[in-house]
Amino acid sequence: MAEQVALSRTQVCGILREELFQGDAFHQSDTHIFIIMGASGDLAKKKIYPTIWWLFRDGLLPENTFIVGYARSRLTVADIRKQSEPFFKATPEEKLKLEDFFARNSYVAGQYDDAASYQRLNSHMNALHLGSQANRLFYLALPPTVYEAVTKNIHESCMSQIGWNRIIVEKPFGRDLQSSDRLSNHISSLFREDQIYRIDHYLGKEMVQNLMVLRFANRIFGPIWNRDNIACVILTFKEPFGTEGRGGYFDEFGIIRDVMQNHLLQMLCLVAMEKPASTNSDDVRDEKVKVLKCISEVQANNVVLGQYVGNPDGEGEATKGYLDDPTVPRGSTTATFAAVVLYVENERWDGVPFILRCGKALNERKAEVRLQFHDVAGDIFHQQCKRNELVIRVQPNEAVYTKMMTKKPGMFFNPEESELDLTYGNRYKNVKLPDAYERLILDVFCGSQMHFVRSDELREAWRIFTPLLHQIELEKPKPIPYIYGSRGPTEADELMKRVGFQYEGTYKWVNP
C-alpha cells in the first residue's frame, strides 16, 4: 500500500466541504435556525453545542446559521458558553472563530407547556436576519415526558411559513410498544414523516454505516452471507464503567431499553437485511423493517440478565456495585447486563442465532459485530482449526478484520490463527472521521433520513421486546451478580454456547 501524504486539518475539512456542497440537498446560502429545546441540560452542553461548534469551526454548516437555545432556566448566552465550552476542545488559535460562533447564538427562556412562551420564541426567531423565511431545525434534547406539549406548541407557534421545518427526537422513544405508539401517533398528527428525525446516534458511527458497503459492494461476501456458512452472529456493546452516581436515570430504563432495543437491534438489521433497491432512505429502511418483521418476540429462556457488584480487589469506582450508587433505588432489580438470542425467521437466516450482548462495568470498552462461520467440513488438521470470524469493530479503534487459519512457519503443516486486517487509523491517516452527532446533524440539514429511525421500524423493535420488558417488570427477577471489570455473568457464556457459538479464547485482536 502506497504511503499517504499527511494533510493538514484545513485540507481534510476542505475535502469534506467539497463532498457536502456538491450535493443538491445542502442549501449552503439559505438562512437556517437550529433550535435546541432543553438548552440547559446535560445532553445540550456535552453533545449538541459542542457538535454545532465543530461543524461551524470546520465550515460545514450553511453560511447563515443561527443557534437558539430554549429552556425553562433563566440563562444568558454567557451562561450557555460557560457550561458548554469546556466540552468544545477549542484551541487558543480558534479564539476569534469561537467569538464568531457565540455571536450567532441567542437564548430564550420559557415554559414547555405555555403557548405564550412559544409565541415569544417565534418572535425572537423572526427578528433574526431573514428569520421569518429561514429553515428551522428543532432538536428535542428533553425528557420524553414533555415531548407531547413541546411538539404541539412548536407546531402551533414556531413553524417557518416559507422555509422547511424538521424536528429531531432523542431516544428513548417511549418505554414499550404502547407508549411508543402513543408518542408516534401524537407526533405524526403534527408533522409529516419526512419532517421527523428520530435519532439513534449509533447509526451515525462510521463502521455501522460501513456495514452496507461491506455487504453490498464486495462480491466475495454475497455468496457466504447466509445460514449455510454463518453459524452465529454476535452483536456486542461493552462499557468498562458503571453508573457513577447517575444511576437514578438509568434505573428508569435499564440496559435493554438503553442499548439493546435500539443500538444493537439497528446493527442487527444492517447485518441481516436484503440488498435495498438503492441507497435512498426509504429503500434502506424498507429492508430493515422486513428483517424486524421476521423476528419473533424474545423468549425468556433465551435471556440472561445481570447486575454488577463491587470488586473487592478493585480501586475507586470498581469497588462499588450498582446498588451502592446513592441515586439507585434500594434493592433495585434493574439489569445492567443483558444477553438475548433472537432468530430472523426467513430463508437466508433460518436457524442462525443472533446474540445481542450489552452491559456496564465490564472488562473493556468495545462495540462490534462478529460473524462466526461454520467449521470446515472434512477436517484434515486433527481438530487444530478454529472457526473463521469476520469482525466489524465499531469502537474504539474502528477496524474490519477476518480471523482465519494460516500455516505456522516451519517444517510442518501446523495451522495457527491469524488475521486479515483493515484498521482505519492506519489505512486512512488523512481522513477526519466525523463524530456520530456531527454526521447525523449534517444529515438533518441535508434532509437525508437514511440513518434515522422510521415509525414502522420503531414499532417493530418495541413489538419484539415489550413482552419481555413487561414480564421483567411484573416478576422482578433478581439479576445474576457479576463482578465489576469482569466479562459479565458466566451464564451468558453458557447461553451463547448452547445456541452454537464457540468461544476459543486463544486469539485476541490487537490494534496495530
Rank of each mutant, 00 (worst) to 15 (best):
S188V: 14
Y202M: 02
K82A: 14
A149I: 15
F253Y: 08
S123E: 15
G222P: 13
G41T: 00
S84R: 07
L43K: 03
V213M: 13
W164L: 05
D42R: 01
D200L: 04
F250D: 00
E148Q: 15
M212D: 03
I162F: 13
Q83F: 08
S29N: 11
Q195S: 10
V77F: 10
H155M: 14
A90V: 12
T145K: 05
I33D: 04
L7Y: 14
S132R: 11
H32S: 15
N210G: 06
K82F: 11
L96N: 11
V208I: 12
V68I: 07
R257C: 08
S188A: 14
G69P: 00
H201Y: 02
L177H: 04
T91D: 09
G163P: 05
L55A: 11
R175C: 09
K89T: 07
R136L: 06
E206F: 10
S189W: 10
T51L: 04
N153C: 13
I36G: 00
R72D: 02
I36K: 00
M207W: 03
Q133S: 11
N64Q: 10
E18N: 12
D181W: 05
W225K: 02
S106R: 14
A115Q: 15
D251M: 01
E18C: 09
S117R: 15
R72A: 02
V68M: 07
P240V: 10
R136Y: 14
F88M: 12
G131K: 13
R192F: 05
P240C: 10
E148D: 13
P92W: 10
Q133P: 15
L235V: 10
V169L: 14
Y147H: 01
G110Y: 06
Q22E: 12
G174P: 01
F221E: 01
L16M: 08
R104Y: 08
V233N: 00
H201T: 03
L55F: 03
Y118W: 12
S8L: 05
I196K: 02
I230Y: 04
Q195H: 09
E206T: 09
Q22N: 14
D114M: 08
V213S: 12
A6L: 09
Q111R: 10
W54Q: 12
A78C: 13
D100Q: 14
W164H: 10
S84A: 11
T31Y: 09
G254T: 02
E94T: 08
N226D: 06
G38D: 00
G245D: 12
